[in-house]
C-alpha cells in the first residue's frame, strides 16, 4: 500500500513579466488502487500539478510538500522520482531523434529495475505489451515519438506504464487527440495496470468521456490553481451537464 500526499502545494513559473503563481495551495491524497480524476477548464493549472510532481525544471515550488510513502518527492531528482514509483504519462510526449523505442524502453527498465532485464523474457514482455495496445511490431524500431501520430504517442505512454510498473501514475490529458477506438484501447491499458499492480491513478482531463472507460473513485474540480470542489463519480456527471462556468466565475 502506497500513499502519495500533496499538501498545500504552491508552484510558480518565471515569465517575461516575472514570477507568476500557478498553483495556490493544492491538497490531495492518493492511495494504491484509487483513481482520482482532476477536472477543470484550460489554464486552471492541471498540467502544472502533473509536471511539478514529476519534477520538470520549468516549475518552482514555493510552498507545501509532496511525499510518497513519507519520502520527500520534492527533494528528489526527476529520475529518482521515477525510481520511487512515480510515472507521468505526458500530454505531449517528447521526440528523441535517433533513439529507438526498444533501446529507450530497455534503458528505462534497466534503470528502474536496477539491472538489465534478461533479453529473452524482455523481448516477450515488450511484444506482449505492444500487442495488448494494438501496436505494430515495427514500432519498436522507430525513434521515440518521432513521426508518431497523436494516438501512437499515447499508446506508447501507456505501454511504458504497463512495462515500468510504477506505484502512482499521473495521466495528463491522456484522452486528448484520441478517437473512440484508441481511447478504449488506451483506457484498457490503464485498467490492466491498475488491476495488475494496484496502481494509484491521478487522471487529469478536461472532458468526462474517458471516465466512461476508467472509473474514478474520486472527482476533484480544479480551477484557478486549486481544488474547488470534491466528490464521487457523480460529480463528473454534474460537470458534464453544467460545464465549468460555476467554478471559473468564482
Amino acid at each position: 500500500m502506497s500513499v502519495l500526499e500533496i499538501r498545500g502545494l504552491q508552484v510558480s513559473v518565471d515569465t517575461e513579466n516575472g514570477s507568476v503563481e500557478i498553483l495556490k495551495g493544492v491538497d490531495l491524497t492518493i492511495k494504491s488502487g484509487e483513481t482520482h480524476a482532476i477536472m477543470g477548464p484550460n489554464g486552471s493549472g492541471k498540467s502544472t500539478l502533473a509536471y511539478s510532481i514529476a519534477g520538470h525544471p520549468k516549475y518552482t515550488i514555493t510552498g507545501g510538500s509532496v511525499t510518497l510513502d513519507g519520502a520527500d518527492v520534492l527533494d528528489m531528482t526527476v529520475d529518482e522520482r521515477a525510481k520511487a514509483g512515480l510515472f507521468l504519462a505526458m500530454q505531449y510526449p517528447v521526440e528523441v531523434p535517433g533513439v529507438s523505442v526498444s533501446n529507450f524502453l530497455r534503458t528505462a527498465a534497466t534503470a528502474l529495475r536496477g539491472e538489465a532485464p534478461k533479453l529473452r523474457t524482455w523481448v516477450a514482455e515488450v511484444k506482449g505489451a505492444m500487442e495488448a495496445l494494438n501496436m505494430d511490431p515495427s514500432f519498436a524500431t522507430r525513434n521515440v515519438n518521432e513521426g508518431f501520430s497523436g494516438g501512437e504517442k499515447k499508446r506508447h505512454e501507456i505501454m511504458q506504464l504497463e512495462l515500468l510498473k510504477p506505484k502512482m501514475a499521473i495521466l495528463d490529458e491522456t484522452d486528448s487527440g484520441l478517437d473512440v477506438d484508441a481511447l478504449r484501447i488506451v483506457s484498457e491499458g490503464v485498467n490492466r495496470a491498475k488491476a495488475n499492480n494496484d496502481l494509484g491513478v491521478l487522471l487529469i482531463t478536461h472532458y468526462t468521456r474517458i471516465l466512461k472507460y476508467i472509473k474514478p473513485d474520486f472527482v476533484h474540480v480544479f480551477a484557478n490553481g486549486k481544488i474547488v470542489e470534491e466528490g464521487g463519480p457523480d460529480l463528473a456527471d454534474k460537470l458534464e451537464a453544467n460545464g465549468y462556468a460555476d467554478y471559473v466565475s468564482k
Binding site: 529520475d79 522520482r81 535517433g98 528505462a108
Partner: peptide, 30 residues
C-alpha cells in the same frame, strides 16, 4: 541539449548522465 528530451528520459528513471548519453548517441545515430 534539449531540456525537454532530458526531462522525458529522466522521468522514466534514466539518470541525467545516461539521458545525455542517449541523446548524443541518438544525434549521431542517423
Amino acid at each position: 541539449f534539449d531540456d525537454e528530451q532530458l526531462f522525458y528520459l529522466m522521468s522514466r528513471g534514466i539518470t541525467l548522465e545516461n539521458a545525455r548519453r542517449l541523446v548524443v548517441r541518438g544525434f549521431f545515430n542517423e
